[in-house]
Write a protein that binds this DNA or RNA. Structure first.
Length: 489
RNA sequence: CGGGGCGUAGCGUAGCCCGGUAUCGCGCCUGCUUUGGGAGCAGGAGGUCGCCGGUUCGAAUCCGGCCGCCCCGACCA
């Protein structure tokens, strides 16, 4: 048992811990191309669970899926001034095809507003054609200077919703609705509590009227922007001539929204729940929820325990069961590996529950059940598994959210502090600091330069401090907003 | 792009200063014994020492150039 089996601890080096964990738990690996990653089956399995849950939520809120191409004519990008300024520097551009220089260069999509709204313009004539509520699951490319597995890669997977509406208020409602969908998903599935709110001008999406975001707190107290939803106003409609005839018979520009979440959420999940023993997967996202480890000494015992393990897995994991009643099971019947080694193997990978079935258990018609989050170990009757396992999985899902929420609050500073104290906090352990802001972008830039902290959001009402701050943290001038400051990924 | 670090077997490394047959651990393969918290013993496979050039009888080691990756910063889902 040498030390190289142990992970670097979070306390020793959070960044190293994260990288090691992602690699060793086999979530992802570095690719031959700098800044790109290979998502391995465990990581992709988590992403698939995320996709399913979100896709259902999108459908339930009236959206349909479609697919738009990877290549976008370069000229499209430049039709919206702020948009091109924001994205052009990080675009990959195709200059040649079939061995010849292209007449017009093609941008590999960094996001699809331009191509989608140019198509919407073809499809919309009347207010009766609205709203258009589209989503696509896709990959996008942004030429990032510095990358990190899942958190920032040059190519990443995401979904991008794009909608068109007849009025500003409808678009605003949509942008808000989808922010709420994201929040629900992050809390109910990733067990990752978030602060929602509006982005400042400096932080908003290039080309948007307003940007809303979900901000989560990682275990190093840094913020992770986990999802964004934009009210695009009529900026893109004007750029792409997305017009319709309204009820009064007049031509009007449509109002758009776009919203997206990405594989970055997998990184968020890791940094929210991982511990020094490895990954901890929220049960709802775990590709395997229960791993059964049969234990034996003799061949006869092996036959018996493996058979029993398979019978349980086949029953509770059967595809004949309705999905919500099905438990995702795996039997680790590898020979030549001792049980202890298997325990470490699955703990590193964050599988929520482990069932140990040995000869003694067969004799007493019970088995040992171990929770990954608490490592609590209890004996459970074999006959009770069909109810015990789902109950424990649900309890884990709840407990993980509660623990993460407690950590978020414990590392938030809501009392009024001086700017000097603020600097100390940001140089030290970090925190989400709720404070007044006079609304001056210069102040925001100054704080960023001095402390690396930024305004994560102007929080929505429910997240605000009961007694609103009256003065600006930095200038002492009257506070225009209460904002959340933090260092971010 | 600036700063730092590193390229030696699948992974992690020693050797480099002071040139002379490639080190160790993990992993892998075979066999036997094991299996309720990272098994033991025995045998075995696996290497263009990142690339190119130079110095030398001889280069992982010295010199020059290049490439790649990771970490820290400026930019970002």
């Amino acid at each position: 048992m040498s030390d190289d089996k142990k992970l670097t601890t979070r306390a020793a080096d959070f960044s190293a811990w994260y990288n090691e964990l992602v690699l060793r738990a086999e979530l992802a690996d570095y690719s031959p191309v700098r800044g790109c990653m290979v998502i391995r089956p465990l990581g992709y399995g988590v992403w698939e669970r995320m996709q399913r849950a979100l896709d259902d939520m999108f459908k339930a809120t009236g959206h349909v899926n479609a697919y738009f191409p990877l290549f976008i004519p370069e000229s499209f990008l430049s039709k919206e001034a702020e948009h091109v300024e924001g994205f052009a520097p990080e675009c990959a551009v195709v200059t040649h095809g079939g061995g010849k220089a292209l007449e017009e260069r093609l941008v590999v999509r960094p996001t699809s507003e331009t191509i989608i709204y140019s198509m919407f313009a073809k499809w919309v004539q009347s207010y009766r054609d609205l709203p258009l509520l589209y989503n696509q699951w896709a990959n996008v490319v942004r030429w990032e200077m510095r990358t990190r597995l899942f958190l920032r890669t040059m190519e990443f997977l995401w979904q991008e919703g794009h909608t068109a509406h007849a009025t500003h208020d409808e678009a605003e409602e949509e942008a808000r609705r989808m922010l709420g969908v994201y929040r629900t998903f992050m809390e109910d599935y990733i067990a990752m509590p978030v602060i929602t709110g509006q982005k400042t001008e400096a932080e908003k999406f290039a080309g948007a009227l307003r940007t809303y975001a979900c901000e989560a707190m990682m275990q190093d107290n840094k913020a992770l922007q986990a999802g964004t939803s934009h009210n695009l106003g009529q900026n893109f409609a004007k750029a792409f001539d997305l017009t319709f005839q309204n009820e009064a018979g007049e031509q009007a520009y449509a109002w758009n929204t776009s919203w997206g979440v990405s594989t970055r959420m997998v990184g968020g999940m890791v940094m929210t729940h991982g511990d020094d023993n490895g990954l901890r997967l929220p049960p709802r996202l775990a590709p395997v929820q229960v791993v059964i480890v049969p234990i034996w000494k003799t061949d006869e015992e092996r036959d018996a325990t493996v058979a029993r393990a398979r019978a349980i897995a086949d029953d509770l994991g059967s595809f004949k069961r309705l999905e919500h009643e099905r438990i995702r099971m795996h039997v680790d019947d590898r020979v030549g590996i001792k049980p202890g080694a298997k325990y470490y193997h699955w703990e590193l990978r964050g599988i929520p529950l482990r069932l140990e079935i040995g000869p003694r258990d067969l004799a007493s018609n019970q088995c040992m059940l171990v929770r990954r989050d608490t490592r609590e170990k209890v004996a459970v009757s074999m006959d009770a598994l069909a109810t015990e396992l789902p109950a424990r999985l649900e309890a884990m899902q709840r407990d993980m959210l509660a623990a993460a929420r407690a950590r978020l609050e414990a590392n938030s500073i809501r009392e009024r502090i001086s700017y000097d104290r603020f600097k100390e906090v940001m140089e030290g352990d970090g925190a989400f600091v709720y404070a007044g802001w006079c609304g001056d972008p210069e102040v925001e830039a100054q704080v960023k330069a001095e402390t690396k902290a930024t305004i994560r959001v102007i929080p929505d009402a429910e997240f605000r401090t009961p007694e609103a701050p009256t003065t600006c943290l930095v200038t002492g001038r009257p506070a225009k907003y209460e904002v959340v400051w933090a260092k971010a990924y």
